[in-house]
């Protein structure tokens, strides 16, 4: 029991620690790895809490002081089982909602391309005939709106496109998907939304540094970011104006132009499948854990069903 409490305390510290650190000046890839790990820990902590509620809590008999009762076919034990299964159901529902949101976002981008694509633009990008300002990475392609092509000057457009290519080269979409799945599972842990926002911010900064490493002027990129952030289009997740714009622009202007170009770090990239595997295995294990908890209770001899004699 003590070991379990120590492990829980360590997990809470590890989850809270990134929020206390000043990661703005840390390498962007490292910051992304930290936030992704924090989200993974949150998801695992949520699954752990649900398993504890399903398997261990009933064995301690927290509702026993209220006594066993029967009302028709409904027994106090049936009600208790349903009560303890609720967190697992909520968590599973949240994961399904997260997956549905990801599929919807993917379809939204496909619809955007289907409805508004008018041809090929600079550097193989897909041009959308839309007056809003948008440059975004969507899967392996870069989308650029007519509004952006009309409004941005040559240097801003090149820097913006390089930023989006950075997202593709650094394979950010996999990290973002993993982060979103973890966010869905850990939805009820305080600070999860903030951690997911910080992950997106770190990925945007990572792509900014990629563009800078290709000899683009930080002030030009900052200007392109500010202009596209003014566009009101519901943009895909990895878009040029994403993240907290003023904070991003400040960090861009403070960036070292001679810094090494960022790369898709194998350690960071390995985190994404690991996270997805752990979260999915954990979520899939929930029904079995619930089943085990159910049997554990009945092994202890507590009656489950009500008979006519019980009701009497």
């Amino acid at each position: 029991m003590t070991a379990l409490l120590v492990a829980a305390a360590l997990a809470v510290c590890a989850i809270a620690l990134p929020h206390a650190l000043r990661l703005d000046h840390a390498p962007a890839g490292f910051a992304a790895a930290i936030w992704l790990s924090a989200l993974l820990l949150r998801a695992l902590a949520s699954i752990g809490a649900v398993v504890a509620i399903e398997v261990y809590l009933p064995v301690t008999g927290p509702l026993e002081p209220f006594g066993a009762w029967c009302a028709g076919a409904l027994s106090s034990h049936t009600l208790t089982d349903a009560l303890f299964a609720l967190p697992a159901l909520v968590l599973a529902g949240s994961l399904v909602a997260g997956i549905v949101a990801l599929v919807r976002a993917h379809r939204h981008v496909d619809a955007l391309v289907r409805e508004y694509a008018v041809g090929t633009g600079p550097d193989g990008s897909v041009v959308l005939g839309d007056g809003e300002l948008l440059i975004a990475a969507a899967g392996p392609r870069v989308l650029v709106s007519a509004g952006a092509l009309v409004t941005l000057d040559d240097a801003e457009l090149r820097a913006g496109l390089e930023h989006e290519r950075g997202h593709i080269v650094l394979r950010h979409r996999y990290l973002l998907i993993a982060g979103e799945l973890a966010r869905a599972v850990a939805r009820f842990v305080p600070g999860t939304s903030a951690a997911a926002r910080e992950l997106t911010f770190a990925l945007e900064r990572h792509a900014d540094l990629y563009a800078l490493s290709r000899r683009h002027d930080p002030a030009v990129l900052a200007s392109a970011i500010c202009k596209t952030a003014r566009g009101s289009l519901r943009a895909p997740a990895l878009s040029l104006g994403g993240g907290v714009v003023a904070r991003r622009a400040r960090l861009l202007l403070e960036a070292d132009p001679e810094a090494k170009p960022p790369r898709a770090h194998p350690g960071l990239f390995a985190l994404a499948p690991l996270m997805v595997a752990l979260v999915l295995v954990g979520a899939l294990a929930l029904p079995f854990a619930a089943h085990a908890g159910y049997h554990e209770k009945h092994r202890l001899g507590t009656p489950h069903t009500c008979h006519a004699s019980d009701a009497a």
Partner: peptide, 18 residues
């Protein structure tokens, strides 16, 4: 290659949808 209507209607439609 882009009509003025395409250029304007997307943003109007989305603004109204929101």
């Amino acid at each position: 290659k882009v009509t003025e209507a395409e250029y304007l209607s997307g943003s109007i439609r989305r603004t109204l949808a929101g």
